[in-house]
Structure formats: structure tokens, C-alpha cells
Amino acid sequence: MRLHRLLAAAALAVACAGLHAQDLSTVCHATSSYDLTVRPDQLIFDRAAPAPTRVVLGNGVLITDGQQVALNDEEQDRLALFQQDLRALMPRVKAVAQRGVDVTMQAVREESGSLNLDPDTRAELDNRLATDAADLHQRIAASQSTHDWRGDAANQYANRVIGDVAPLLASALGQQAVNAALSGDLQQAAELRDRASNLASGFQPRLQRRLQVLRPQIQALCPDIQRLSELQQGIRGSNGRWLNLLQIGQ
């Protein structure tokens, strides 16, 4: 029935904090080759290549690849504002992510409504989704690094949701199909398979349309992201190259 595709699409969207369809790159044309880790006294930007691969901002000091960069007063002021504005932006980005989790979980609930689940299965599904949503909300709130949502980390969150929900739905649908087959209603059994297949194949684009509701909230971030890009301009790392912690495209 390809049911795993439905749950995989949902879980991956959740794991990406609801920003898969309306991310900052699409809406604000903002990109960065760095991961960001926020500490009480520092902002740490890191990437595999090119140099500088590690940029540390904090307490009026700029360090790139282990070397402190000499800054004039104007540059120190701009980097202080950069740090202040970026820290202020983080709760707003998290708020979008939190809402994205809610939108995605609600989409799974509504999409599964077409599967004619029995009351017990429906109640258990709602319970598991609520538990997973609460966990993701907590993880988003506690997260201080974009590393938490990349690669294996994101896949772990996705697999957890899949592991919680997919067996439940598969069992319920399988039992419906068995009951239909045993009663001799092969057409109903085939319809169940088709229903689940159609739901799985169309879920991702429908979810992306639902996530359009996040667009105004993300657009409200764009002016502040643009300001961050402007504040970093003209400042070089220890290797003499522009920092380019954040890029704004067209």
C-alpha cells in the first residue's frame, strides 16, 4: 500500500521543523554555507570548506580559524549589532518551526481520516501524534544549533515518527483488507489498497500547500535577515576574505 511513503513524507517535514516548503532560501532568498551554534557568550559558525571553516563571534572579538581578527571601532559596533539581532531573531525562527510541526501533524490526522479507521485506532493515532509533536516542540525549543536538524539527526526524528505511526496504520488497513477479502468483497479490498496508495502519493504536495500558511510569518523575518547581511559586509576574516556568513540572492 506504500503507506510508509505517507509517513515518511510527513515525518521528514516535521523533522525539518515545518520549513521544508517555505524555507528562508525560498522566501527571503537567504542562504548560508555555515551551520550556526548559539552559546551564551558566543556565536559559532562552522563548515567543512572553504576557509574560514570556523568563525567565532563574542565579547567584541572575531576569531576565524583560530586567529583573532583586528577590528576597528566601527566594525566592532556592527558585529555587536549582528550578534544582538541574530539572537533576537532565533526565537522568531523557532516560532515558525513550532507552527510548522502543528500544521504537519494536523495534516497527517486529516489525511488519515479518509482511511475509515476504527475508533480505537483513531484514538491511538491521535495520542501518538500528540506525543511526537510534544517531543519535537521541546527539541525545537531546546535546540541551539542547526546541526540538530541536519543529516542523520533529522532522519532519526523522521524514523521515530514513522516507527510510532506506520505500524499502527498498516495494521488497521491490513485488517480492513483481510476482513473484506474474507467476506468475499475483493473490490473493497482493492479499493483499500488504492486509497492508501493515492493518499501516499499525493500527500507531499498537499502538505506543501498547507505549509503556505507559514509564508507571511517567514516573510516577516526577511527585513531582519537582510539587515544581518548588511551588518557583516566589509568585514574580513584572518585570511583576508569577506566573512559572508550570510548571503542574500535575488
Results as ranks from 00 to 15, higher is better:
residue 188 Q to A: 11
residue 140 I to E: 00
residue 102 D to Y: 04
residue 77 D to F: 14
residue 85 D to P: 00
residue 95 A to C: 03
residue 1 M to A: 11
residue 99 R to A: 08
residue 69 V to H: 09
residue 49 A to H: 09
residue 152 D to C: 02
residue 199 L to C: 06
residue 232 Q to K: 10
residue 2 R to G: 10
residue 71 L to K: 13
residue 41 D to P: 01
residue 72 N to I: 14
residue 182 L to R: 10
residue 123 A to H: 05
residue 87 R to Q: 02
residue 28 C to N: 10
residue 249 G to W: 13
residue 46 D to F: 05
residue 133 A to H: 00
residue 43 L to V: 05
residue 21 A to G: 12
residue 24 L to D: 01
residue 9 A to W: 00
residue 120 D to F: 07
residue 68 Q to D: 13
residue 88 A to G: 11
residue 226 Q to L: 03
residue 142 A to D: 15
residue 53 T to W: 01
residue 116 N to T: 06
residue 142 A to V: 06
residue 103 V to E: 06
residue 56 V to N: 09
residue 237 G to R: 10
residue 35 D to Q: 15
residue 70 A to E: 15
residue 113 G to F: 08
residue 188 Q to V: 05
residue 123 A to D: 05
residue 200 A to Q: 13
residue 198 N to T: 10
residue 212 Q to L: 12
residue 105 M to Q: 02
residue 192 L to E: 05
residue 84 Q to P: 02
residue 56 V to P: 10
residue 135 D to R: 15
residue 112 S to D: 00
residue 29 H to A: 15
residue 10 A to V: 08
residue 224 D to G: 06
residue 122 R to N: 01
residue 186 L to T: 12
residue 72 N to A: 13
residue 99 R to P: 00
residue 37 T to R: 15
residue 246 L to C: 08
residue 127 N to V: 03
residue 149 W to F: 15
residue 104 T to K: 00
residue 246 L to N: 11
residue 250 Q to W: 14
residue 226 Q to E: 11
residue 182 L to Q: 12
residue 68 Q to S: 13
residue 100 G to E: 13
residue 152 D to Q: 12
residue 84 Q to A: 13
residue 28 C to L: 13
residue 121 T to S: 10
residue 126 D to V: 05
residue 134 A to L: 09
residue 181 A to F: 12
residue 211 L to W: 04
residue 49 A to S: 07
residue 165 V to T: 08
residue 142 A to Y: 07
residue 214 L to N: 05
residue 46 D to V: 10
residue 241 R to H: 09
residue 86 L to I: 09
residue 160 R to D: 06
residue 189 A to N: 04
residue 145 S to R: 12
residue 48 A to T: 05
residue 41 D to A: 08
